[in-house]
């Protein structure tokens, strides 16, 4: 029955604005609307289409953005799970009145489809082009086109990736601006909320510009980027559903999640490699560690001998680990949350 309904709805967004269907004794409220929010013609490739999925009606409540970069496959996957879940919740009338949710699974799949991370022509990062320029360069235009569709929402959620490959404890990250609210970030129920002081280059990110434009913006980080990690994807979906439920947007029975610890990014203890070579981690995000414990070994790439035992400088919990099999001298290999002794 939902298939049938879906087909009819796909006939036209305008027609379905007020479309409702009685079926038996249950009232089915119409389904999600799929829209092309922005499109760009290429010289020879298929058009780049930025697609949005809208759920619910009324006030622009929540906007969720997935892959802004071509390697953010996990972020894309999380959005696809979320689209499925929201579709189901909407079909059962579990999106509360006067709330609209917009999900944009991907922006730079042009890069994703050809195995690149950034806009493939000039290697620019769309997440460094916000708020965009309507008549500017190509990626500025894309950013401006996307910004136009995503501004004005009360809450903005981006599934983001770090600039260097690695694994995190799942967390919500916010820029510390005049507009930020860490207590809202707690409602995701992820173990940590990380506050970051914006640096000059952060001022062109989606998160920062969302916040400056009045949206409460959160970046959700999970374990992976280029590979799919099922467990952390489910965790991210649950976190978003939990947040939307707690904000009164969804009627959904979610588990409580964690009571988040709020940490400032500059309070994390950074551990850099003193030597280069093959990196063999022993500890992983979430692991408890005591001062002096060996966290990883860096091996001579020819002879296999240990060049460096990477030791923990403090008691705490591993927050981030370097993920590549090789390291340069000076590379960031771990960050830790320092344990505070009473």
């Amino acid at each position: 029955m939902t298939e049938n309904l879906n087909e009819r709805i796909c006939e036209g967004i305008e027609q379905i604005r007020c479309f409702r269907k009685e079926e038996g004794t249950r009232l089915y409220i119409k389904y999600m609307r799929k829209e092309i929010l922005y499109s760009l013609k290429a010289p020879y490739r298929d058009d780049l289409r930025v697609t949005g999925y809208r759920f619910g009606f009324g006030e622009k409540t929540a906007c969720i953005v997935g892959a802004l970069r071509g390697n953010e496959v996990q972020q894309l996957y999380i959005c696809s799970l979320l689209v499925q879940k929201l579709k189901e919740l909407e079909a059962h009338g579990h999106i509360t009145q006067n709330h609209e949710i917009l999900v944009i699974p991907s922006v730079n799949h042009y890069a994703m489809n050809i195995g690149k991370r950034f806009w493939a022509v000039d290697n620019t990062d769309i997440n460094r082009k916000f708020p965009g320029i309507e008549n500017g360069g190509t990626t500025e235009r894309i950013a401006a086109g996307v910004m136009e569709c995503i501004k004005g929402y009360s809450y903005g959620i981006q599934f983001a990736s770090f600039y260097m490959p690695g694994q995190f404890i799942p967390h919500v990250r916010m820029m510390e601006t005049a507009h930020s609210s860490a207590s809202l970030a707690n409602l995701f129920g992820l173990p940590y909320v990380v506050l970051r002081k914006p640096k000059p280059y952060d001022t062109t990110t989606l998160n920062y510009n969302w916040q400056i434009s009045g949206t409460n913006a959160f970046s959700v980080y999970t374990n992976d980027t280029e590979n799919i990690n099922e467990e952390s994807a489910q965790m991210a979906v649950s976190a978003v559903l939990r947040f939307l439920t707690r904000m009164g947007v969804l009627k959904y029975n979610c588990h409580g999640g964690y009571i988040a610890s709020v940490i400032r990014e500059d309070e994390l203890t950074a551990i850099h490699a003193e030597r280069s070579g093959i990196f063999r981690p022993i500890l992983h995000p979430g692991d408890e560690v005591v001062r002096g414990q060996i966290m990883a070994r860096i091996l001579d790439p020819y002879e296999g001998t240990v060049r460096e035992n990477v030791m923990s400088p403090t008691d705490g919990i591993v927050f981030f680990t370097h993920q590549k099999p090789l390291v340069n001298q000076k590379d960031l290999v771990f960050t830790m949350i320092r344990r505070l002794h009473a």
């Binding site: 030597r275 280069s276 070579g277 093959i278 790439p301 020819y302 090789l326 390291v327 340069n328 001298q329 000076k330």
Partner: peptide
């Protein structure tokens, strides 16, 4: 100078 992973210095 920085040591790169395999047999090279920057």
């Amino acid at each position: 100078t920085i040591e790169l992973p395999v047999d090279e210095r920057l």
